[in-house]
Nucleic acid binder design. Structure first.
Length: 452
RNA sequence: GACCCGUUCGUCUAGCGGUCUAGGACUCCGCCCUUUCACGGCGGAAACACGGGUUCGAGUCCCGUACGGGUCGCCA
């Protein structure tokens, strides 16, 4: 059987991390099996037909590299790929159900007769789940009354206005599109018996179901758009690499069973398997996501990294053609976790503005002889003929020797005076990039500040 | 409330009856490396929800309880 998976978003807004992960798992499973990944837009509800929202979702998927073999813009033999355009197909299947006596009219709506017996879902991840839909549906929880009230267990599949309900469309589409594996969030597990009943009534073999656990926020509740890291657009804007975001999403709920944590997309597509999917919900951890991104950053080819970093320099006003950029990227690649961290880390070399970290200043001023150190630095650096990393290095060494001190004692004051804090990229290359004037000016300014 | 799913370090997870004095990763702490900052290396802290069974033996199987999540629409 050839594998066909699908991601079926409702085009309501941004691409959410939960949806993106579902898309990823479907994509990976299709790739791994040499199958087809289908994108279908679930816009049955007129209010959900939202071009702008759809655009954001497609943009997010494309950024992640989760491109679809069939769907909007890609075409395919099983279209249309918008539910809003599939009315005739639904009509046709409804007619079949009507013929076989599986449905009846109810106040203008059409209801599907739910069988009064156990239905068992054979889920690849959750195991067997058995439910009697008739029993279960004959009462309904009334949230206002806070009690169960009698209900009609039969499923409405078409509204009086002729529009169809999600469950029906979902089943008909999966059937018509030849979907072999439905990989979706566990929030659909309870709906699956309904879908199975529908497949059976249509005389069709259902797809394989795999319900993946949900991603929760740090508080243990469902992630909402407000939670950090919830929207894919956040990653796009904040300097994450798409392959790193995919890597992290893959790890949230799936394990390769060995100790590998960092995967390329190709490795994921090869290694991913439904067997490795965990049953339990997981909590999103932004810190680990950052770490994964940093690891991918380190592994990137320098030229590629430079290209990807450019927009983030441009964002803070540093020209993408600035000759210092390759050096800036090289200096920050190991300590940046996001592309957007890179300009921040070297900003003191690109701007006249500098902000001093009070704690760092306090730390260096606490030591005796700071004035002498700063003077020696200024004297030595102003005499450097060749303002390069090496030239600067020699000057600082000489200055330290002149005072009978170790170079190490000179580094921290120099760093704080010129960069504003105790941490950052390598000092010598930073000074080289900063330019002599800026360095000397800062040494002077810092001297008078701490002296005063 | 009913039904469904789940429960190993703070977090992500390995573990599929003995090899578990429970392994890896993130985070945190310490040490080493180092002209600074990082990187890297080494080490440390940190978990089988609870109670009953089954078994010679249970993190691993069964049943309860607790807790968490999900579903109960003419939303998707």
């Amino acid at each position: 059987m050839s594998v066909r998976t699908r991601f079926a978003p409702s085009p309501t807004g941004f691409l959410h991390i939960g949806g993106a992960r579902t898309a990823l798992y479907n994509w990976l499973y299709a790739k791994k099996s040499g199958g087809i990944f289908v994108l279908r837009v679930e816009d049955t509800d007129a209010a959900r037909h939202n071009e702008e929202g759809l655009g954001k979702i497609l943009e997010g998927l494309r950024w992640l590299g989760l491109t679809w073999d069939e769907g909007p813009d890609a075409g395919g033999d099983f279209g249309p790929y918008y539910q809003s355009e599939r009315g005739e197909i639904y009509d046709r299947h409804l007619a079949r159900l009507r013929e076989s006596g599986h449905v009846y009219d109810d106040d203008g709506a059409v209801r599907f007769r739910v069988p009064d017996r156990d239905i068992t879902v054979h889920d690849v991840i959750c195991g067997e789940v058995t439910v009697n839909l008739h029993e279960q549906g004959s009462t309904r929880w009334d949230a206002d009354l806070k009690e169960n009230v009698p209900a009609n267990p039969d499923l409405v599949i078409r509204r009086p206005d002729g529009s169809y309900i999600f469950h029906f469309c979902n089943v008909v589409d999966d059937l018509e599109m030849g979907i072999s594996h439905v990989i979706r969030g566990e929030d659909h597990l309870s709906n699956t018996p309904k879908h199975l009943a529908l497949f059976e009534a249509l005389g069709a073999k259902p797809p394989v179901y795999a319900h993946i656990p949900l991603n929760l926020n740090q508080n243990g509740s469902k992630m909402s758009k407000r939670d950090q890291g919830a929207l894919i657009h956040e990653y796009m804007e904040n300097g994450f690499l798409p392959e790193a975001v995919n890597n992290y999403m893959a790890l949230l709920g799936w394990s390769s069973k060995d100790d590998q944590e960092i995967f390329t997309m190709a490795e994921l597509a090869e290694r991913f398997d439904l067997d490795g999917v965990n049953k339990a919900n997981s909590k999103f951890d932004y810190e680990k996501c950052l770490w994964v991104n940093g690891e991918h950053l380190k592994r990137l080819d320098p030229a590629d990294l430079l290209e990807r970093a450019k927009p983030f320099f441009a964002k803070v006003g540093i020209d993408a053609d600035d000759a210092r950029l390759p050096k800036a990227v090289e200096l920050t690649r190991e300590r940046a976790q996001r592309l957007s961290d890179m300009p921040t880390l070297v900003m003191s070399a690109f701007s006249d503005q500098i902000t001093y970290d009070p704690e760092a200043v306090a730390k260096v001023t606490a030591k005796e002889g700071l004035g002498a150190v700063l003077n020696a630095l200024h004297g030595a650096l102003s005499g450097v003929a060749d303002w390069t990393e090496d030239g600067i290095k020699h000057a600082i060494h000489a200055a330290a020797e002149g005072l009978g001190q170790k170079v190490g004692a000179f580094m921290l004051p120099c760093r704080v005076a010129t960069m504003g804090g105790t941490t950052g990229p390598d000092l010598m290359p930073m000074l080289a990039m900063m330019g002599r004037d800026r360095v000397l000016k800062r040494l002077n300014a810092f001297s008078s500040t701490v002296a005063g």
